[in-house]
C-alpha cells in the first residue's frame, strides 16, 4: 500500500496511487499550515476553566483535549485566526503579533 507520507513532488508516476486515491485517514495532519500565521494565540493555562468552548470554534481542529483538559494549541495547524481568543469567556487566550508561539 502506498502511504501519503511517501508521496511528494519528486515521486515518479509508477509510485503514485492510481487516480489520486489515498488509503489512510487524516493525512492532512502531515501538512503544516502553521506557517500561515501572522498572529499567534497564547494559551494562559492558569486562566483556563476547561469549558471547551474554544474547541468547536477552531476551524483547524488545532485545540486538542485530553482527559477532560484543554491542551495547548497544535501550532503546526493553527492559522492564527483569533476566533478562540474572541470567544473565550475567561481571557485564557491572548493573541500575540507574529507567527511564532510565545
Amino acid at each position: 500500500m502506498i502511504h501519503a507520507k511517501d508521496i511528494n513532488e519528486k515521486t515518479p508516476w509508477q509510485e503514485l496511487t492510481p487516480g489520486g486515491e489515498i488509503y489512510e485517514a487524516g493525512t492532512a495532519r502531515l501538512y503544516n499550515t502553521g506557517t500561515w500565521r501572522t498572529d499567534t494565540p497564547f494559551f494562559k493555562q492558569e486562566n483556563c476553566k476547561h469549558c471547551m468552548l474554544c474547541v468547536p470554534y477552531c476551524p483547524d481542529s488545532a485545540i486538542p483535549v485530553q482527559d477532560g483538559k484543554r491542551q495547548d494549541f497544535v501550532f503546526m495547524h493553527c492559522k492564527g485566526c483569533g476566533i478562540c481568543a474572541e470567544i473565550c469567556p475567561f481571557e485564557a487566550i491572548e493573541m500575540t503579533p507574529g507567527g511564532a508561539p510565545k
Binding site: G26, A28, R29, T33, P59, D60, S61, M76, K79, C81
Partner: peptide, 11 residues
Amino acid sequence: LTGGHRMCAGC
C-alpha cells in the same frame, strides 16, 4: 475533520 486542511484562517 483534521487540521492541516487549506481553508482560510477563520473560515
